[in-house]
Structure formats: C-alpha cells, structure tokens
Design a protein around this nucleic acid. Structure first.
Lengths: 193, 193, 193, 193
DNA sequence: ACTCTCGGGACTTCCCGTTCAT
DNA sequence: ATGAACGGGAAGTCCCGAGAGT
C-alpha cells in the first residue's frame, strides 16, 4: 500500500500523464481530480500529497503536454528532407489524427480557449509553450522577421485544428484548406530567398 | 394576455443576450443558469419555462453571438473603401478590443475549444456560424478556390485571437503578426487577378 | 433526477432503512455515508439535504431498528398461546436466525457496545428502546416487581445474543443455555402466582 | 544487547497495556495506533517492529484484558466466605465501578459487540476468554449442567453491563435488577443441592 | 526508535441543473 | 415568475495504517 520514494515519483508522473491526456480530451472542468487519480491507478485521497491544488496539476499537465507535442513536431522536422522541414511539421500538425485525438495533441488547440480567460499559472505555461512553438517554426523560416512570420504561422495552425474540431464531418476540408495555404506561404518565402 | 406573451418573449431575449455575453466571457461551465438569470433581471426558477435545458440555451446563445459578430464584420466590410473590404474585416477582428472583450466577440474564438469536443447542438450552431463566416470572407475573395482560401483565412483569424488571449502581455505582437500576414495574402490575391 | 416532495420522503426512508441494516451488520464506523447512500440508490452528495450529520442518521436508524424489532417481538407474543407468550418472545429473540442476521436484528445487541460509550443522541434512542423492550416483557410478567424482573430478563437476552455472536461455532450452545435458563425463570414465576 | 532486548519487551508490554485500556474505553476504531503509542510513551513509527498490524495488537490487547478481568474475579471469589463466592463475583462484575470504567473492565462487555462481527483473531481470543469465564463460574456452581447454567449466567452478566452503559442515568436500576435475579438463581441452585 | 511520507478514504461544504409548489 | 427543494458531484481537509529512510 505504501511506497518508496522512487515509487512515489512514478505515481506523480502517472498522475501528470493521465491529467495531460484527460484535460486535453474532455476539458479542464469536465475532469475531476478523482477521475485523474482513478486513471492513474489511485484514489483521490492521496492527490494533495503530490499537488497543492487542481490548478497546480493543470499547469504541470499543460507543460507536459506542450513538451510532448513540441518534441513530436521537432522530430517531424528533423526527419524530413532538407527544405521540407516546415511542410512536414505542418502536415503532422494538420493531420486528421491530430484533430481526432485531442488527448495526445496540442494543448494550445485543446485548452487555449478556456485558459486564455483567467490569468492562471497554466495560462503562463501555455504562453511559454506558444513561444517555444514559434521558435521551432522560426528556426526553419527563411527571410527577415522570422519570428513575426512564425507567430502568424502558429496562429494559423492552432486555429485550423480548432476549426476542424468544430467542423465535425467537414474537418478534412478545413485541414486541407489550411495545409494548402501554409504550404504556399512556405514556398513563397523559400522562393524569395 | 397578448401583453404577457410579449413580455415573456422579451424576457427570453434578455436571457439569451445575457447568456451570450457571459458564456463568451467566462466559459460555459463557469456560468450557471442562476448567474445568467440574475444578469437578465430574474430569478433562476423561471428559466425552464423558457428553455428545455442549459444546453439549449448554450446553443441559442451561440447562434445569437455569431449573428452579432457576423453583422459587425459585414458592416466593417461594407463601410470600407472599395478593395479594402477584407482588410477592414481583418483589422476589426484582429483588434485589441476584440481580444480584450470576449463578451462581445467571436464565439468561435471564445467557445470553439470547449464546444469542439462534444457533439452538441451548440457545436452544430458554431459550425454553421463558421460556414457563414467563410462565406462572408469568400464573397470578397478574388481568384479561384475562394471557399478554400476563405476557410484558411478564417482559421488564421480565429487562431490569432485565441493565441493573443493566451499571450497576455504580448498580445499586440501576436495580433500584429497575424494582421501583417493576412494583409499580405490579400494583396497577393488581388495582385494575381 | 429531481423529485417531488413525496419522492423525497421515500428517499429519506430508504436511507434510514439501508442505514439501519448496514449499521447493525457492520458497525457504525465501518459504514460510510456514501455506502448507505449507494445502497439507498443515491450518491452521497444529497445526504445532507436529509440529515444534519452522520450522527443524526445513526440516531434515526437506531430508532427505526428498535421499532422494527419490538414489533416483531410483540407479534411473536400475540401469536403465542395463552401463557406461552414470554417463551415465544424468548425463542424468537434467542434464535440462530437472529444471531446470524444482525442486519435485521436487535439494535441493542448489535450496537449497544459502541453506543454505550459516548453520550450521543443515538445512545438515548437506544435507551428508550431498552425501556420499551422492558415494558413489553413486563406486561407478560406475573408477580411483583415486574419491571425489575423484566430488566434482568432483557439483560440476559441481549447478553446471550452478543455472546453467541462471539462464540462462533458454539453459538447454538450459548443460545440453548440462555433459552433454558429463561424458560425456567418464566415457569417459576408462573408457578408462584 | 541483552539490555535492549529487555527494554524492547518492556516497550511491547507498555503498548499492550495502553491498548487494552484504550480499546475498551473508546472502541477499536476510535483509537489509532498513534494514540496507543503516545500513551505508551513512544512515537508511532516503531509500532510495526513490535506488531505485524493493528489487528494483531487488538487480539493481544483483548487477551491481556480478559486475563486481567478473570484474575480480578477469581480473587473476588477466593476472598469471599464459603458459599458466597458466586455472589461476590456477581457483585464485583455488576458494580457501578465496572460500568463506569470500561477501560479496566471486561472486554466481553466492552468489545463483544464490534468483535462479534468479523471473524478476526481477536474474536477468537474473546471467545476463549468467554469459555474461561464460564469455567470460572461453573466451578462454583452446584448441580448438574454446571456449564450450561454458567453460560447463561455469563450472558446475563455481560448483557447487564452493556445495558447499564446504555442506560445512562438509570444504570443503577439495571444493575440492581440483574444482581437481584442472579442472586436468586444462585440461592435456588444452592437450596436444591 | 523517530520522523516523514505515501496512499486510502471519510466527512463536510458548496454549488449546479432541474423541478416542485406557490 | 419566485423560492425552496432535491439529488449529483466536486474540492479540500483531515486522519489513519503502513512503511521508508535516517
């Protein structure tokens, strides 16, 4: 029943992982501390030994989710052929798989709406993730104002996934449109330099 | 009798208006039926004479909010000088005012995240609003594939507002970047035709 | 989900009945408010609309249990042949069935130990039940000092059931011994008058 | 080394003594391992060096308590004048002192209710105490079926103390009634032989 | 032997959606 | 239309048994 220090650390990690998935899938308010703990294989009584509050967990889960997504996108970029990195990132982000599996997807798209409202710790975490996302894009961008362009790029990516999720059956059309527009922009910028 | 019916209709409208503002400002879960009714100048007991459930109100409030926003954007387009219509719409949508006042802003940006999850009536309403938003843009678009381009355009708009709200202090940078990118796209398309 | 006043009263009664059974079966500390509510077909959230605290429920459940048992014993007495009433009551109380089914049995035997400690409302309720139990016996008792004799009688009954439950396999012997002794006492008192 | 082992044994004994008093006074569930250890002059960390579990302590504490009570009753019997032994035991057991001081009293009366429910080690210990109690009585009993009579006798004793504790203010009446009845039984049995 | 930690679970408070009763 | 009621469910606090770590 009781655990050594190492096992407790594992418990904590299981909680964060479960939370990161569940919050993205169902929203923060719809997921209770008890739900998360159950998925992590515990009861909700011990939660407050690991986190000061639900809010603290939200922040940490967001951080985890953002790192996860960033790492996936970075790999997509690095695995692509030279000159195709950005397109690979776009295609990964704007995939049906991403739209249909928010649990493993980008926290900006899944939780940006609700976290943009309050000035919580989680909002700051999300904002850091956003900045890092922009950096990731900017490093592949040709031309001046890479950061500005990358910022607009990220906005377009996030907005497309959100709109695709709203679109229901038409989600493929939304994704295709966004992919097309972003590919064009990439090509133009590459042509220009 | 006729009077009371008219009054009831007015009550109903007040409820919808209050709900539309509050949901966009604080999110659906954070706003209770009682909160809405209080803001509408009633007590929460009578709510269910007007609506079958909170969900029904959510759907209706979304519809109202979307019509409101669309109308504002349409006016922005119509008031602009010839050839500047799209830019006017973009500048209206991507204004600080919009970002800082979700209560009167676009429901796609405010509620798209949470409503994209469940397949509710409200999600369908939001989707219709999205389609109408695209039409509004497409009607000003030059060139083929107006719908496709407009869809990507809307994604970029919505994503920028959401990201700006996440960004906190940096929201102006986010808006500027998006505005810049979209203006460029508009000009290119106009140049091409 | 919501209920009319009559249904709420039924809910309340279901709670009391479930509690009366569970407390007697497993003890007060071993049964949580949530357990009771689950057995009553509800969740534990609504409990405090019906009772001020768990303690209040304990008192009420005891009262219910005692009335139930008293009524059963009264019927046993009334159904017996003339002059056999007390023996019938004894045999009902000191049956294997009673020992093996504390959930439907006498609250004095099941909860007397733990409730005798604190001066709770439930203890007072139990005490009233004890007094009523004595009256029930006394009304059949021949001779002077009926109340005194009945009090000793009740002590012997309660003690026998408790001891039988402790005895495990030997419970039949304990019951037989107590039955024998009490039958003798009844006969002596009848002979004497 | 030898010293420390002796000290450990003393610690263990202090724990058992404290536990035996506290469990009888407040019930098993209401007394935590920490409470017991504090009363024994230690912190609760070392508990599990002495006992495998709280349950094991309960069993041992019951054994201790029962031996203690038995010894007291045996002395009461042995100190009495010839022919008065049983009455002396009865009067000792059915004293106000006993009723008001469960901490030093009979474990059957104090814990019989809660331990009669589960089939724990402690229940078996209690059962052995019960058998020994019966033997103690039987050895003074005149006439055939001494064991049977003694069993009923013990039931009456235990039941009277439990009822007296329930009775609150009326505890004296309960005790007097039981004493009276048992004295009569003793006299009858003595007259008969 | 002591201190600290972990996980379990209970109680209570609060609030929400929904409906009843007026 | 009001206000109270009912049932659901969450957050948080507290404490317990058990064990780890020093």
């Amino acid at each position: 029943m009781r655990n050594s220090r190492a096992e407790a650390a594992q418990s904590r990690e299981r909680i964060v992982i479960a939370a990161a998935r569940m919050f993205r899938a169902d929203g923060i308010d719809a997921v209770s501390v008890g739900d998360v703990m159950k998925k992590a294989g515990m009861t909700h009584g011990g939660f407050y030994k690991h986190f000061a509050s639900k809010e603290a967990l939200v922040a940490e889960a967001c951080g985890f989710a953002l790192r996860e997504t960033r790492s996936r996108l970075r790999i997509a970029g690095e695995s692509a052929e030279k000159g195709e990195e950005l397109k690979a990132i776009v295609d990964t982000y704007l995939s049906e798989r991403h739209v249909e599996n928010p649990a493993g997807g980008c926290a900006l798209a899944a939780l940006g709406g609700e976290l943009g409202r309050a000035n919580s710790e989680a909002r700051k975490t999300l904002d850091e993730g956003r900045a890092a996302f922009i950096s990731l894009i900017a490093q592949y961008w040709k031309g001046p104002d890479a950061d500005l362009s990358a910022s607009a790029f990220v906005s377009a990516l996030v907005g497309a996934v959100i709109n695709a999720r709203i679109a229901g059956e038409d989600r493929r059309k939304v994704l295709r449109a966004a992919r097309h527009a972003l590919h064009q922009r990439i090509e133009e910028s590459q042509r220009a330099h």
